[in-house]
Structure formats: structure tokens, C-alpha cells
Design a protein around this nucleic acid. Structure first.
Lengths: 297, 297
DNA sequence: CCCAGATGTTTAGGATGCCTTCATGGAAGC
DNA sequence: GCTTCCATGAAGGCATCCTAAACATCTGGG
């Protein structure tokens, strides 16, 4: 019963194929195949079985994979305690983030990290809410968001902490009839032309809430994902849109108006696997991150 | 950060010298010395340092040793879950026991185990209460006893469960003046000739309680440890003694009288290291053991 | 219905790691 | 000072782990 074998089974369960695990761990599928048979010889039960184009865990494999998290988290806690004893946290922390939250948080994060021994690697991706959880396989921390709850969909079994709560405003062109209103309500907006996002993507639930409250189906003249693009379309006067307050730059071309009458706040959440978050360096980055997040509002 | 290294450091902390760990794990001190240096190379800190005739853990070594229990217990839980999934518990369980409790419990235990896949290895030893905890290094379960509390001295950080509570009676020769009393009290006994046990050994605290209650120093004509020997000495009419009720055989040569007026009960306790007790086979034996213990009283 | 691509497995061989034996060097204790 | 105990170092045997390359199997599309 070696930790290495448990980790392999867990990874296999999560990534699906041996090849994917091999790529992620810089080994060959052959090596992993042999590891699996070694593990099976050790415990005396089949752990995997062939299934439709790949492998599937047996009941025994599932048990070992399920136990892997506890074991690896315990190991990570030891490592963390050791790092803490050595003083300054050090090392590289891999962060994945949705672009808008990254724009709001990373400058503050990085400026507070200068002079420390911590380095960060950042990758950004624009995904549906439920897909962020899966990226914790490749990053120590993933900055995701959640519109309904405080934990993003799919991240229920992961570590998660709310970094900030960000109001979602309505962006209107500078020359729009509502541009000088201090705030707007759903009924002001139902008949507008909307620059919207695809289903499942950020803010789609807010569109749906507006429709539910007003009983009107919004006129979505286009569906785009990138907020920069949304900003420019609104700035051109093509329609109105939803944009996050903290991570949208000020511009003379449009104005951001607080939206009342529907739930229009998203939680910016940092999520990660328990064993990764136990690392001292990751904890340290997370602490800074929550601090930066608290400074936003 | 490998589990094997953590275990080595834990064992080293507990057994004191590399040689002792080597003997217990059927390896050479040289192998362990090399393992230690491998571990140090991995974590980048000194884990041990020379000290008076042997080794001492550094602060870093202490941290890793302290974390070992969690990691190994998590691993053992996985193994246990796997065993449970396989159905029947199987394997060998090593039991250490104090002789008197063993005599009372083991026959019942073994008779209930026939037909199962479980095997047990038994070793018995007559120790001071505080020394039983240390034997958990070499046995999966240690049947110890405790006179004051429900956890034997020294076993505070171990798993422990009370198997039975056994009254300690006063054994008097068949021809003794008290032989037909239904029960006795300390003041009846203060002027007797006692066959006693050395300090720290079973029942010594009861002797001391009798002295405290009566204000008389008992006349210890001899101090012996083995209960068989005590029985024969009492049977010969040489004096009176304390003997456990369940594990002392009936005999025409002496009688056992309940003792009132002082605390004269011992707890028969099974103790073990958490990672060992997590094993499914050990759990199964423990369940039978508590069952047998419950049938004693 | 057959072929192309993806996926896991097998085998051989090289590199690494682990452990034992034997020898060495200190540190306590008599 | 000698003996004993303890840890360490070097050399060699043996197992383990990994890669590379050939192989086997399955899926799904044309």
C-alpha cells in the first residue's frame, strides 16, 4: 500500500486515461501500466479493468483512489509544517484564473510578492463555471467564480474560499438614455438590445434572472465571452451588457450602473485540491490573495 | 517526502537507536543510515544529529516524525477499507498480554476464531503498568491493565478501549480465620502477613490504598510477580495476597474474598497504535475481544 | 465493412535505488 | 586503555523503475 500507487489511481480516475496521466506526470503509459500491475500484485486484487477504449477502476481501485486524498493531504501537511519551520515560504505556485478576476487581483498579488521568495506562474482561461474545478488538476490554485452559491459548481469536494464579492453592473454607452441614472432595475432593461454571453458562462444566470423577473425574453443581439470585446461593443453604442465592477476599466465610452432588483453579485473564489493547498507556499499566496480581495470592495 | 522516511524517523524517535530500529525491521543499521541521508537530501535539511552515543532528531526530524502517525494511519485506513470490501477479515494479528488477563480472555478469543481466516500470535509479559504502552511497537494489540484510570499510564496517545473491569480479591488460605467471611475490609487485613508485588507492578496501588486507609504499613514478607507463584504461596498458608477474580483458578487451598472500602478494581484495556488498530483484521479481533470481556462479569 | 487512430500491454535494456557485508571511526563505561 | 556500543562509509548484488519500440485491442468513421 504505497502512496505512489494511490496517487496513480486517483489521477487515473480523474484524468480518465493512462495516457493523460502519463503526460501530466512526464512518464510513459508503459511505466504506469507496470505500476498498476505492481500495485495489484501487492494488494492481491484487480484494480483496473479494460473498458471501452480505455481503463476503468474496479471497486477495489475506487477504494484506493478514494483514500488517496487523505493520505496525500497528510503528507502535504507534513511538508507544510516543515516549510513553516524553515521560515520564509518559498517556491513556485501555479495559478489558474478567469481573466476578469485575474485582472482585478493579480497586480495587487504580484506587487505584494516582490521581495519574497515566492514565484507564481499564471495561466488564464475563460470557461463555464462548472469547468474551473477540473483545472485544479494542473494548478495549485484556481481563481474561479460562482454566481449562485459561495462554492462554484463542481468544486464541492475541493478546498474553496471566497476572495471577494463583486457586483455585476450594467454597462451602457455614454450616450444612452440611462447613462446618467444612479442605478437601474430589470424593468428598465427588458426592452434593450443586449450583448450577452453563451449559456453556462459568466453572468448568463443574471440574464435569466432579468427574464424571470420581467417576463420578457431579452433581445440578445450577439453572444460573446471576452469582456474586452464586450466593453468595446458597448462603447460603440451597439447595446448594453453586464460587466463586473472591479475588473472593468473606466472609460469615457460607457458607464457602469449598479443593478437592483435581481441578485447580481458574483463570488470570486479560490479553489484547489486539499493536498496542494496544504503547501506552505500556496497558503502564503492564498493569504495575500484574500487580503487583496478584501481591498477591492 | 516519502511515507517510508517518516516511518523511519518515528521509529527512531521511539526506539532510540538506529540499531534497535534495524533489528525490529530486519534490516542493518547501515541501510537505515543511508535512508536517513537520502531523506535529508530530499528535504534539504538535517533530520538527525549525533548525540551522546547515538542519534537525536533535529527540529526538522521531529516535525516529520510527528507527522508520521497521521500519514500511516491514513494509509492503514485505506488498507482497512479494502479488506472490508473483500469480506472476511484475514491475516495474522500479534497480541501481547499480561499473563493473568491473557488467561482470562484468550481461551474465549481463540475458540471464537476457529473457522475464521484470522490467526493470532501471542506473547505474554509481566510488566509495570507504564511499560505496556511501549510494547505496542512490537504487537498489534496489547492487553494491559490500569488500576487508577481507564487508560494505562503511558498510553495516553494510543488507541485504547476497556475490555473488562475485574475486581481484585483478597486470597486467604483455606484454614485462615477469615476464610469463611463473605467479604473483607482494609482494617481486617492490616495486621496480616502479605505476599506482595514490587512497586509499580499490578496491585501495588491497592496495597498502598490499604496502608493509606488504615495508617498501618503492611508486613510484606515477600515480593513476587507471578500470580501462579502467589497462589501456591497462599495455598501453603504463608500469608494473604491480592489476586484478580476472573483469572485466578478455583482451588481448595485458598479462598477469594471481595475487598470493600478501597478501590480494588482493575480495568483490562486493549491498547495499540492507531495505524495498527486501523487494520481490518485487528479490528475484528478487537471486536471479539470486547465481546469476550463483556462475558466475564 | 474495413481501416485509421487511440489506448493499453509487453519485452528488453539501461539507470537508479535499496540492502547486505565488511571495514572504519568515535564515544561511554569498566 | 580496552571493550562495547553505535553510527558511517565503500563495494557489490539484486530488485525496481523507467524508456523505447513493437504489439494487441478496441472504437468509430467513411
Amino acid at each position: 500500500m504505497e502512496a505512489r500507487h494511490l496517487e496513480l489511481l486517483r489521477d487515473l480516475k480523474e484524468r480518465g486515461t493512462l495516457g493523460a496521466v502519463a503526460a501530466a506526470t512526464y512518464r510513459t503509459p508503459s511505466a504506469l501500466s507496470q505500476q498498476l500491475r505492481t500495485a495489484e500484485r501487492e494488494v492481491g486484487v484487480a484494480l483496473v479493468e479494460p473498458a471501452a477504449r480505455g481503463l476503468r477502476l474496479t471497486w477495489a481501485g475506487e477504494i484506493l483512489a478514494a483514500g488517496a486524498d487523505d493520505v496525500l493531504a497528510a503528507l502535504a501537511r507534513v511538508q507544510s509544517a516543515l516549510d513553516a519551520g524553515r521560515g520564509e515560504p518559498r517556491g513556485t505556485v501555479r495559478i489558474g484564473t478567469l481573466p476578469s478576476a485575474g485582472a482585478a487581483l493579480l497586480p495587487g498579488l504580484m506587487s505584494r510578492l516582490v521581495g519574497s521568495q515566492l514565484r507564481i506562474e499564471v495561466e488564464d482561461f475563460d470557461l463555464a463555471e462548472a469547468d474551473y474545478a477540473h483545472r485544479t488538476l494542473d494548478h495549485d490554485l484556481v481563481i474561479a467564480h460562482s454566481l449562485a452559491a459561495d462554492v462554484p459548481a463542481g468544486a464541492e469536494r475541493l478546498f474553496s474560499v471566497v476572495i471577494a464579492r463583486e457586483p455585476i453592473d450594467v454597462a451602457v454607452p455614454a450616450e444612452h438614455r440611462l447613462a446618467s441614472s444612479p442605478r437601474v432595475r430589470p424593468e428598465d432593461l427588458a426592452r434593450e438590445r443586449w450583448i450577452a454571453v453563451p449559456r453556462g458562462f459568466p453572468f448568463a444566470t443574471v440574464h435569466e434572472s432579468i427574464e424571470a423577473v420581467t417576463g420578457v425574453t431579452l433581445d440578445r443581439i450577439v453572444e460573446v465571452r471576452d469582456n474586452r470585446l464586450v466593453e468595446s461593443l458597448v462603447g460603440e453604442g451597439l447595446g448594453i451588457a453586464l460587466l463586473p465592477r472591479f475588473s472593468t476599466p473606466r472609460s469615457p465610452a460607457y458607464r457602469l450602473l449598479p443593478l437592483e432588483g435581481v441578485h447580481a453579485t458574483r463570488a470570486i473564489v479560490a479553489i484547489g485540491r486539499h493536498d496542494r493547498v496544504e503547501r506552505h507556499a500556496v497558503r502564503a499566496v492564498l493569504d495575500v490573495l484574500t487580503d487583496v480581495g478584501a481591498g477591492l470592495s
